[in-house]
Design a binder for these strands. Structure first.
Length: 473
DNA sequence: ATGTGC
């Protein structure tokens, strides 16, 4: 493989083997993965072999090794030119994403006892880890179908939220094309008892404060100001999305050959978007996306109740955006508008100012892009930039540098909690082992990743947030 | 990420 540096934050992999387009990696030299330990550059090249792929197989600065596609990967296929959809291009945690809420409260107003009260309240109110608890217990599969079809809209209809919330959700809270009938029985069973639960791994709910504002005008449009207290929620579609991914990888492994498709890695199993199997996957995937949105809506409501009880203040939704999704979008390719299936896996949509899909009050500001940091480190709010080079996409987080196993050997959970609390960050975990696996040393530096993303022209910084307290899945 | 593996 030949990796050519094109500019400070852009590398090109020239086509070789079956690659139909080049690979493009947006990163500084220091952020590039170590090929001895991480095969994600090879994965960028593998993705470039997929039928119908256009422009390039892209990777964001937080890229690392994933299932088939790299995490931090963006690839678009031309729907009307035999373009494929691949579950590995979305990931197991379908529509994993981030929701940010802003309190009408400044950091200085938040006393020590209030922080403790909030953290204890959230500790009790936010189901997480491997427990079987959730905010909502659905009556039956019929009610789950409503969640799968209508997402956060259904939660708001059921009075778990206010209509304004939906204006600040991607796709106003429900992805079109969701087809609950394509969701298998096992996925349904796993999904029934998990609406309103964080899960584990890198999922969290944090109380944060706006540490720095880079663009006052855009931050103001997003409802953010320096010193403001916020709540960030990072979670996905739990066992339901995982089961859907498992089921459809299996279906596509069986049927890809029927369409004459061969791939360099069986984890890239895919079928044409327009095939019955492709349509079925996209219908089930959109249903899982809606499940994840309802999940975040319910957890936000739980946090609102705690904030109201302890501080008497409200939480306004800034935005809710996914970073694991395939979407049918229109983009210009070689001067012509084409319908594309844009896979973003560990990559965030970043609509620029003026984009027609933005709500009217964000027209001049662009889409809020929410980047969750590692436990104990900063998170970012960004916005899209006109003429962005990767189908209006940017990074999604810090990106793992050590495996879970390696991370757990670096530090013990108890010690990590003491360290964070000594640094003024309150911690409410789910398990000591889970905490240790998420130690900041196991991740790349978020500030460096965001520098590279902005330097590559993918996005622009709006605000930096720092943690006050973390409720860890 | 995941009732953490075939």
């Amino acid at each position: 493989m030949r990796l050519v540096q094109e500019s400070d934050y852009r590398f090109r992999i020239d086509p070789y083997g079956g690659m139909r387009v080049p690979g493009v990696v947006f990163a500084s030299r220091a952020l590039l993965p170590d090929p001895a330990a991480d095969k994600s550059l090879e994965q960028v090249a593998n993705v470039a072999t997929l039928p119908g792929v256009v422009d390039a197989s892209y990777a964001m600065p937080d890229m690392h090794w994933g299932y088939g596609f790299p995490i931090g990967g963006v690839a678009a296929t031309d729907v009307d030119a035999g373009g494929v959809v691949s579950p590995g291009g979305v990931g197991f945690d379908i529509s994993c994403g981030v929701r940010l809420l802003a309190a009408d409260l400044d950091r200085q107003e938040l006393t020590e006892p209030a922080v403790r009260g909030l953290m204890d309240g959230l500790d009790a109110a936010i189901p997480r880890g491997m427990s079987h608890r959730a905010v909502w217990t659905l009556h039956d599969a019929r009610q789950l179908r409503e969640v799968l079809a209508e997402g956060a809209r259904y939660a708001v209809q059921q009075h778990h939220g206010v209509p304004r919330d939906l204006e600040r959700c991607e796709d106003t809270g429900a992805m079109a094309g969701a087809d609950p009938g394509q969701v298998g029985e096992r996925a349904v069973q796993r999904g029934l008892g998990q609406v309103g639960s964080l899960g584990s791994g890198n999922h969290f709910l944090e109380i944060q404060a706006v540490d720095r504002v880079y663009d006052e005008r855009v931050a103001g449009a997003f409802g953010l100001r320096a010193g403001q207290v916020c709540v960030m929620i990072h979670c996905g579609s739990r066992g339901l999305g995982h089961q859907i991914c498992t089921d459809y990888v299996r279906v596509m492994e069986r049927t890809a050959g029927r369409f004459g498709i061969t791939v360099p890695d069986r984890q890239l199993a895919c079928v044409p978007v327009t095939s019955p199997e492709g349509r079925a996957y996209l219908g089930a995937m959109a249903a899982a996306a809606n499940y994840a949105r309802a999940n975040r809506q319910l957890l936000a409501e739980a946090a609102r109740h705690v904030f109201d009880r302890i501080t008497g203040r409200e939480l306004a939704l800034v935005y809710d955006i996914s970073h694991n999704l395939a979407k049918l979008e229109t983009h210009e390719v070689a001067g012509a508008a084409r319908q594309l299936c844009v896979h973003r896996k560990g990559a965030t949509r970043a609509l620029p100012p003026g984009h027609p899909d933005l709500p009217a009050d964000l027209h001049d500001a662009g889409q809020p892009v929410l980047i969750p940091g590692t436990m104990g480190t900063a998170s970012y709010v960004l916005t899209g930039r006109p003429g962005g080079p990767a189908f209006a996409s940017t990074c999604h987080g810090a990106g793992r540098a050590l495996s879970r196993h390696q991370a757990a050997k670096v530090v013990r959970g108890q010690e990590l909690r003491r360290r964070l609390e000594a640094g003024g960050i309150a911690v409410r975990g789910a398990s000591w082992r889970g905490l240790a696996e998420e130690t900041p040393e196991a991740y790349k530096d978020i500030d460096t990743v965001v520098d590279a993303a902005q330097g590559a022209g993918l996005c622009a910084r709006v605000a930096r947030l720092v943690p006050i307290g973390v409720v860890k899945g």
